[in-house]
């Protein structure tokens, strides 16, 4: 018996954890299923069509590049393209023509992801960058929102004058500007906003479904709590302190931050986009700074920008700071005081 030939010589450790990149991506897809289901529930087959088109286009683009350009057909099996396509679809308004969704996916994969080295190399979140491309190319189509199948676009029972076709955030801004913010009317919309029965992008409306998915990921230790917590907290606190309605203890002052958290794409962005491992810092303090920065930028864009939304650009800008944050916050080694590079 010559057992010399049978023994492998391998580097320690001789045990490995079960989780792999593919399993992480699969879990992410599963965690996004409640949100996808909610979008179909509220916006009917339109959202299903968008999800399927965007996902298929992303996977197809990945396949083409992996097979013909980089010649790493194995790259397809990690499932990251599917996550990108799905996430992009969830950030689109229900009336968007499907070909635009497909175009966004192709841009996300072929321009944002692969030229920087594919999975793990991209500087910014591909799904969000694809959305930014669509936003710049088709601003009208990207900002046309409709009411859900069984509800109103802003979640209010009675439409306010002149803002009948506006999402909760647009509604809030209009009312704040015209001084017609009526607490009782606006409070009525809280339940609709939490469930998702309001107008908006297909995946962003249902806070309930998003939270459910995030809990799955958190339980499986795939996402951490720091980035979304500090993101949402910063937005809430800043809108509470600088609410523009006067005072910080009035009912209006409390309504505005709740609207800002539930009414737009903040939860989708905070839980699934900002938390993307590739484009977020690795250290605990880095994650806190990143989340807080995203929140502060979102506040600035929403408060002073031309659009009522700002989550997308906030995350994209903070994505670019991640290499700096990671280098700046190099952790002090064991028993050593923190050193700055």
């Amino acid at each position: 018996m010559n057992d010399r030939e049978m023994l492998h010589n391998a580097c320690a450790p001789h045990l490995r954890a079960r989780d792999s990149v593919s399993s992480i991506m699969l879990t992410t897809i599963i965690a996004l299923m409640p949100t996808a289901a909610a979008s179909v529930l509220f916006f009917s087959a339109r959202s299903l069509l968008l999800i399927l088109t965007a996902t298929a286009a992303a996977v197809l683009a990945e396949w083409c590049i992996a097979t013909f350009v980089t010649r790493q057909p194995r790259a397809l099996s990690d499932g990251s393209a599917m996550v990108t396509g799905l996430l992009l679809a969830l950030t689109l308004p229900p009336t968007l023509p499907p070909w635009m969704a497909a175009l966004g996916s192709i841009v996300a994969i072929a321009i944002v992801k692969w030229p920087f080295g594919g999975l793990g190399g991209n500087l910014v979140n591909p799904a969000l960058a694809g959305r930014a491309f669509l936003m710049l190319s088709f601003p009208a189509a990207m900002t046309t929102f409709i009411a859900p199948v069984a509800g109103t676009i802003n979640g209010l029972a009675d439409s306010l004058d002149g803002i009948a076709a506006a999402t909760p955030l647009a509604c809030l801004r209009h009312s704040a500007l015209t001084g017609t913010l009526e607490p009782l009317v606006f409070q009525d919309a809280f339940v609709n906003m939490f469930l998702g029965n309001i107008g908006g992008c297909i995946g962003e409306t249902s806070a309930l479904a998003l939270l459910f998915g995030a809990i799955i990921l958190w339980y499986r230790q795939i996402i951490g709590i720091r980035i979304p917590f500090f993101f949402v907290l910063t937005v809430f606190v800043l809108f509470w302190l600088f609410n523009g309605a006067g005072g910080i203890l009035t009912t209006e002052a409390m309504i505005i931050p709740v609207y800002q958290v539930l009414g737009g794409g903040l939860l989708l962005g905070a839980l699934f986009m900002a938390n993307d491992p590739v484009t977020s810092p690795v250290t605990s303090w880095g994650k806190i700074i990143f989340g807080t920065g995203c929140g502060a930028l979102t506040f600035l864009f929403r408060k002073f920008g031309a659009h009522t939304e700002g989550v997308m650009y906030a995350i994209l800008l903070m994505n670019l700071t991640v290499p700096l944050i990671d280098r700046w916050l190099r952790p002090g080694a064991f028993n050593r005081k923190k050193q700055h590079a």
């Binding site: 792999s20 990149v21 992480i24 194995r74 990690d78 080295g117 594919g118 999975l119 793990g120 190399g121 795939i222 951490g224 491992p277 590739v278 484009t279 977020s280 810092p281 690795v282 250290t283 994650k287 990671d326 190099r330 952790p331 002090g332 080694a333 064991f334």
Partner: peptide, 20 residues
């Protein structure tokens, strides 16, 4: 099968010597 680093930070979390 070795895949590219996805920057997930799990190694940072488990390192008993607080390295990256």
């Amino acid at each position: 099968r070795m895949r590219p680093c996805i920057n997930c930070g799990h190694c940072v979390k488990v390192c008993p010597r607080h390295l990256v």
